[in-house]
Write a protein that binds this DNA or RNA. Structure first.
Lengths: 124, 124
DNA sequence: TTATTTTTGATATCGTATTATCAATATCAT
DNA sequence: ATGATATTGATAATACGATATCAAAAATAA
C-alpha cells in the first residue's frame, strides 16, 4: 500500500497541509475535490489510514465527534472548537501545573486540553 | 416518564452515586445488577436519558469513546483516564491562564481537560 | 384487591462512521 | 507504448452505540 503516487493522495495530503487545522473525513473529501474532482469517500478513508500508519498524519480525537486529522510533527499543542461553525483550530503553547491536579497514587503520562467558544469569523 | 419509583431506576441512580466517577452505559448495567439482577440495557439507556433531562445526571464526553455519566452538581472539575483499565476518575481543581492560549479574535466560553496515565491500582 | 397505566426486558431496528467488494482505471517499470 | 498491478469509485456490507417495539410485569390509585 502507498506504493504509487496518485493525484488523489497528493490532493488529500495537500489539503491537510493547507488547512493548518484538523479536518474530518468529510471535510477532507470536500476540500480535496478542488484538486481531484472525482474523489470518493473510500479513497479518503484509505488514504487517511495509510498516512496515519506511515506517521505523516496524526489523529485528533475530540469528545463526542468522529476523529479529525492533521499533519504530523507539529509538536505539543491543543485545540479550539468553534461551537458555531464546528471548525477546530490549532492552538500554540500549553499550561504548567498539571501535576498539581493529580491525587496521590496517580501517574500522568499525557494530557489534552480543548477550548470551546467562537472563532473570529463567528464572533460577530 | 419518570413517574414511578422502580427498583431499576433506584439501582441506576445509586450506582452512579456510589461510583464517585463517571460510568459508561455498560458499566452502569453491570454495576446495577447488584441491586436489580434482571436489569436490561434498554432500561439503562432510558434511565440515563430521563436523569439527564431531569438535570440530576451530567454527560461526560471523552475523546474517542462513548459518553459516560456522573451525578450532576459537582461544580467545575476535570477527569483522569487510566490507560490500562480504562476507568475515568474525577479530579478536583482547575488551571488558570487559559485565556493566554487564545489567538486574537477568538472568544472562549468553556474548556475541558483530560489527563491520561495510570491509576493507583494499575500503577504497580 | 382490582383496575389502570407506567415501566421493563428481549430484541429488532436504526444511524452513522468506517470498511469490504470488485470491475474499471491509472500508475509505473520496462 | 505496453503490460502488470496498485488504486480508485460506487456502493454494499459492517460495527456498534443507541432507540423503537411490544407483550409481560410492576407500580400506584381506587
Amino acid at each position: 500500500m502507498m506504493r504509487r503516487n496518485t493525484v488523489q493522495r497528493r490532493a488529500i495530503r495537500r489539503v491537510l497541509e493547507e488547512a493548518g487545522r484538523p479536518l474530518g473525513a468529510l471535510e477532507m473529501l470536500e476540500d480535496s475535490k478542488r484538486y481531484a474532482p472525482r474523489l470518493g469517500i473510500a479513497t479518503v478513508y484509505r488514504s487517511i489510514k495509510a498516512l496515519v500508519a506511515a506517521g505523516s498524519v496524526a489523529v485528533v480525537e475530540l469528545p463526542g465527534e468522529p476523529p479529525r486529522y492533521e499533519a504530523a510533527g507539529k509538536g505539543h499543542h491543543h485545540h479550539f472548537r468553534c461551537e458555531f461553525c464546528g471548525k477546530v483550530y490549532e492552538l500554540g503553547g500549553c499550561l504548567g501545573g498539571l501535576k498539581d491536579l493529580l491525587p496521590r497514587g496517580f501517574r500522568m503520562t499525557s494530557h489534552e486540553l480543548l477550548l470551546h467558544g467562537r472563532c473570529p469569523a463567528c464572533a460577530k
